Amino acid sequence: MTAQVTAQVIADDAEALAVAAALADEFRPGASARDTERRLPRAELDRLSAAGLLAVTVPAEHGGADVRAETLAEIFRLLGSADGSLAQIPQSHFAYVNVIRRQGSAEQRKFFFAELLAGRRFGNAQSEAGTKHVQDIRTRLTPRPDGAYDLTGVKHYSTGALFADWIPVLARAEDDNLHVAYVPSDADGVTVVDDWDGMGQRTTASGTVRLESVTVPADRVLPHHLTFQGPQLHGAVAQLLHAAIDTGIAGGALAEAAEFVRTKSRPWFESEVETAAEDPLLIQRFGELAVRVRASEALLAQAARAVDAAGEHLTDDTAAEASISVAAAKVFAADAAVEVAGALFEVSGTRSALDSLNLHRHWRDARTHTLHDPTRWKIQHIGRHVLNGTRPPRHGLL
């Protein structure tokens, strides 16, 4: 297990947003240095845990704030605007909290929600390399005579696992259905390798998890396949947080570009103005970029409200509307993040390309994060829904 912290318990949505805003302001000044030095944000994650921010979706009957999806999305947008790597780390944490909310037994919910309120963190061990596709999971849960399971497999892109107390592992049981095994990070047979070398999101430590005959008690295994039998919001919430990270990166890049132009850029001689901030062509471009960011924020908020509405009255139709709304927000935010982070150099001039300034971290984070799952398929599902009324499929990426 990771070093334990004493965690506060956040009371409601308003407190959660205030804490997130304060932490984003705290994390922002060190983001560039963490990226340059590839200094993993253990201290910052401990601050998230201690502040109670990682337990805000614990149900009220278990002592949590049970915040709205709109609040959770805004938390991730704020963190993403400060540090695109740091914001990515707890995304899977909340996805696997939702698995417990939906599929956990009363005892499992009681145990794990208490862990969360105490500041414990979930990582993830989900994706595998070299398989046919992303849903081709080959990690296995094999029953033992004593009722427990042996867990064996290799996972890649395991964001958060290096910093986790519990590692949720996606695996197939003997019936070939998908389950989630919640494994202590220090369990015998678990090895977490910090071998992530992505060009962006450099400090997420999204490396490899090796599982060699790990013993998992039966009460630490949840039937994830049941999540997708009937209307569900698992995929919509997970994708909403990805959209929030992209939206945050776009906003952070725009803010840094504006500060750079105001304080460091020289005006182009043909503009005949005293400062770069007075250049009418730069003003035009900043206006265009601001519209992109504002539209991303508006679509994100609208999608989050659709998720909240569906949660209050979950049907096939409300779940479909939530998924489509989130898909639209994700498509737009992904494009905006890459465009705005790239336009930072266009508006800031030659000096902004200096490696020592590390302004390219915004684009690297955006480009890396937006590869998580292809927006082209989201556009397909949106089009089918609009044209033919076809509900989107039920899976964790939509």
Score class of each variant (00 low, 15 high):
Val307Met: 03
Ala298Asp: 14
Ser213Arg: 14
Gly147Ile: 04
Arg351Leu: 14
Leu371Ile: 14
Arg351Thr: 15
Asn98Asp: 13
Ala304Gln: 04
His313Lys: 13
Ala65Pro: 04
Val58Ala: 03
Pro41Lys: 07
Val19Trp: 02
Leu170Gln: 09
Ala33Val: 12
Tyr182Pro: 07
Arg364Cys: 13
Arg361Lys: 15
Pro223Gln: 00
Ala65Glu: 05
Thr247Met: 05
Leu344Pro: 05
Arg28Tyr: 12
Ala21Tyr: 07
Gly200Lys: 10
Ala14Arg: 10
Ala125Ser: 11
Arg144Phe: 05
Leu359Thr: 08
Arg285Ser: 08
Leu17Gln: 04
Arg305Gly: 11
Pro392Leu: 06
Ala319His: 03
Asp219Ile: 11
Arg68Gly: 07
Val293Trp: 05
Ala255Asn: 10
Asp195Thr: 08
Val183Asp: 03
Gln103Gly: 10
Asp146Asn: 06
Ala14His: 09
Thr131Cys: 15
Leu116Pro: 00
Phe332Asn: 05
Ile249Gln: 04
Thr152Gly: 09
Ala148Lys: 09
Thr139Val: 11
Arg38Asn: 06
Arg34Ile: 08
Thr370Asp: 12
Lys264Asp: 12
Val221Met: 02
His62Ser: 03
Ile75Phe: 05
Arg101Lys: 12
Glu259Leu: 12
Val216Tyr: 00
Thr350Leu: 14
Asp186Gln: 02
Ile89Phe: 06
Thr131Leu: 10
Leu170Glu: 08
Ala304Asp: 01
Phe76Ile: 01
His381Pro: 08
His225Tyr: 15
Gln380Trp: 12
Tyr96Arg: 03
Arg376Ser: 12
Ser81His: 11
Phe260Gln: 02
Pro59Arg: 09
Val134Ser: 14
Gly147Gln: 07
Glu297Cys: 10
Phe228Asp: 08
Thr263Trp: 13
Glu339Thr: 14
Asp13Arg: 07
Thr247His: 07
Trp196Thr: 06
Arg285Cys: 05
Ala310Asp: 02
Gly383Lys: 10
His62Met: 04
Leu79Gln: 01
Gly52Ile: 03
Ala43Phe: 09
His179Ser: 14
Leu281Arg: 14
Thr208Met: 04
Thr247Val: 03
Asp146Ser: 01
Val273Met: 07
Asp150Thr: 14
Gly52Cys: 02
Ala366Pro: 00
Ile283Ser: 08
Leu282His: 09
Ala255Cys: 11
Leu23Pro: 01
Arg220Leu: 10
Ile379Lys: 13
Gly349Leu: 03
Arg364Tyr: 13
Asp188Gln: 14
Gly189Val: 03
Pro217Gly: 01
Ser105Ala: 06
Leu86Arg: 01
Val19Phe: 02
Pro145Ile: 00
Thr152Glu: 08
Asp13Ala: 10
Ala336Met: 01
Val67Thr: 05
Thr370Ala: 13
Gly123Thr: 02
